[in-house]
């Protein structure tokens, strides 16, 4: 495995290797020198076609902690905004000697294309593509779940994780369903039927339209961002109705088991899918998710770039 394109490409052993590696790398944060020499001389490009400050910064910090040279290539104000194609941008980066390209793109499958079209030879890491996947987000969520609910070790066997919201448009949900189920978790998706993809019945998870039925059986609940604009396309009648039916407020949080945690990939719509009270409660682990994101991305960068090239050989 030379690229990280989909959470579905990870088997349980490889996923655990990434999480274990992240746990080791997390200790770097506590040291006086928060830097490792591992990727010295390697060049990592952040190629972001969509604005995503938090993901870009997270990758940038991860790469820098491993001593890689980081180039940020945002679409806005660059050659891309002048109409340069993905291919030409890729050829440029290749000519400059990029060892890895971390790509965020609005078109589903763009990272696959970048990895397989023969434009570049380096490693490609998917930092979110269209409504397809966001594998490092799923890894940091799995890491967070494992740390809180499984003592930071092993897989997530039997862990009950509920994901609520706009699954249809969510790359976070797709990657999480794949990864968490690979790690043995029992995943339940909760959304109005309009916000569930066709064929969701074939996914390795359960589906419910009723959040209140699922809450008491959830060890963790992940609230997805729901954009109010969706109601213009008739996915739901109004923000108010959505919030009433699917939002997580204090009363609903009380229905969760005592040690259950609340996750959100951010950015949050307070008052829409999550109430301010819940977002600021001690059940909510959003701030920790951000920190874990750096560790997980360090692990991915190390495992993909730190050796001679093949991640799964290293897992053996």
């Amino acid at each position: 495995m030379r690229h990280l394109l989909s959470a579905g490409d990870l088997d349980a052993a490889t996923a655990c290797l990434i999480l274990d590696t992240a746990a080791e790398l997390a200790t770097v944060t506590d040291r006086s020198v928060k830097k490792l020499p591992t990727l010295r001389g390697r060049t990592v490009v952040n190629l972001f076609y969509e604005d995503s400050t938090r993901t870009r910064i997270s990758f940038e910090m991860a790469a820098k902690r491993l001593s890689a040279d980081v180039i940020n290539f945002a679409a806005k104000g660059s050659s891309v905004s002048k109409g340069e194609s993905l291919k030409d941008t890729a050829l440029t980066l290749e000519a400059m000697g990029a060892d890895a390209v971390i790509i965020r793109h609005g078109s589903s499958g763009a990272p696959h294309r970048l990895a397989n079209a023969g434009w570049i030879g380096g490693t490609v890491i998917n930092a979110g593509d269209g409504t397809h996947e966001h594998p490092t987000q799923a890894l940091l969520d799995a890491y967070t779940l494992r740390r809180h609910l499984r003592g930071g070790r092993g897989d997530l066997d039997g862990l009950r994780v509920t994901i609520v919201g706009d699954v249809l448009h969510s790359r976070v949900a797709r990657s999480n369903v794949l990864l968490l189920s690979t790690l043995g978790a029992d995943v339940t998706l909760v959304a109005p039927p309009t916000l569930l993809p066709t064929g969701v019945g074939t996914w390795p998870c359960r589906v419910s339209y009723d959040i209140d039925e699922v809450l008491p059986h959830s060890d963790a609940i992940m609230m997805l961002r729901v954009q109010a604009e969706r109601m213009q396309a008739a996915f739901f009648p109004s923000a108010r109705e959505y919030s009433r039916a699917y939002g997580l407020d204090r009363a609903r949080m009380a229905a969760l088991p005592d040690d259950a945690i609340v996750l959100h990939p951010g950015p949050m719509n307070r008052g829409m899918e999550i109430s301010a009270e819940v977002a600021d409660s001690d059940r909510a682990v959003m701030v920790e998710q951000v920190a874990n994101g750096v560790s997980v991305r360090m692990a991915v960068l190390y495992l993909l770039l730190g050796g001679s090239g093949d991640l799964t050989d290293g897992a053996a």
């Binding site: 589903s108 499958g109 593509d129 269209g130 409504t131 397809h132 996947e133 790359r171 797709r174 993809p197 066709t198 064929g199 969701v200 019945g201 074939t202 996914w203």
Partner: peptide, 9 residues
Amino acid sequence: GALSGVLGL
């Protein structure tokens, strides 16, 4: 269909 859901297209 199921595949478009998985591929996010």
